[in-house]
């Protein structure tokens, strides 16, 4: 394993009760790269994503086997503080979910939870996060207005800003643009390009063209197994396996 590997997944199996949702996954995810997870509905890609910051811990009866190493440390080790893990590995969901608070308070929320009280520092970090999320110029004059008044695309970028505020190392994105119009989608995709300079990004998407556009590495999941992974350009022009080819060319029956 090289130093550039952010997440190393070793022989991962995941169960919802008796149902095995992920089987024998081995995958390295490089830092400061965008990795896309693709596959049909129910293939396990979102389950896999949620394993990476232990969001599945919240599901009763779920169970993980194998190891997931973040910077070579097992995130499922008993000593790991899950809150601290989720600060390092942030998440953005399919549907924008701003809190019913002001724009400023949304972004400052995680910082306050983490004990930051200094107003100047809070202001500085909120501005930095909103700039990172390419939202600052659009909303800088209405920081005290409700976040619920923003458009869908702006709300999603606000959620990205909120995730970035606590300065995570990894950003997990679960279909972040699927509820957005093409212009807002384009903005999110441009944002992903910019963010990968500083963050490791792992994105689940149903839109294969989006995976092709935004990611460096693509992993194809099917029925709980990782079928093929590799450079996005190669996977979308010359996949190694017929199963991958059949999926990306729409020949799946």
């Amino acid at each position: 394993m090289t130093d550039s590997v952010k997440f190393a997944i070793k022989d991962l199996n995941f169960f919802y009760g008796d149902y095995k949702a992920l089987a024998d996954i081995d995958l390295d995810l490089e830092q400061r790269q965008v990795s896309a997870l693709i596959g049909p509905s129910g293939c396990g890609k979102s389950t896999f994503l949620r394993c990476l910051n232990r969001m599945n811990d919240l599901i009763p009866g779920s169970r993980v086997e194998g190891r997931i190493l973040l910077d070579q440390q097992d995130i499922y080790a008993p000593s790991v503080d899950v809150v601290s893990l989720r600060r390092r590995v942030g998440m953005v969901f399919q549907k924008p979910n701003p809190f019913p608070k002001t724009i400023f308070d949304n972004v400052a929320y995680g910082l306050r939870v983490n004990g930051l009280k200094n107003r100047n520092e809070l202001r500085r970090r909120v501005e930095w996060s909103l700039k990172q999320a390419a939202l600052w110029d659009e909303i800088k004059d209405r920081l005290q207005q409700s976040a619920l008044g923003l458009s869908g695309g702006q709300q999603q970028r606000l959620c990205i800003a909120r995730a970035l505020a606590v300065e995570p190392e990894v950003l997990l994105m679960d279909e972040p643009a699927s509820a957005l119009d093409p212009i807002a989608t384009q903005k999110i995709e441009d944002l992903i390009h910019d963010l990968k300079k500083n963050f490791t990004i792992i994105i689940v998407t149903h839109n294969m063209q989006q995976a092709a556009r935004v990611s460096d590495i693509t992993a194809f999941f099917y029925m709980g197994s990782l079928i093929e992974s590799g450079e996005t350009e190669t996977l979308f022009t010359r996949p190694k396996l017929k199963q991958t080819e059949d999926y990306i060319t729409g020949r799946f029956g």
């Binding site: 294969m208 063209q209 092709a212 979308f236 022009t237 010359r238 996949p239 080819e245 990306i248 060319t249």
Partner: peptide
Amino acid sequence: EQPMARDLR
């Protein structure tokens, strides 16, 4: 159609 892989080729 945004073809991929062998379709694109």
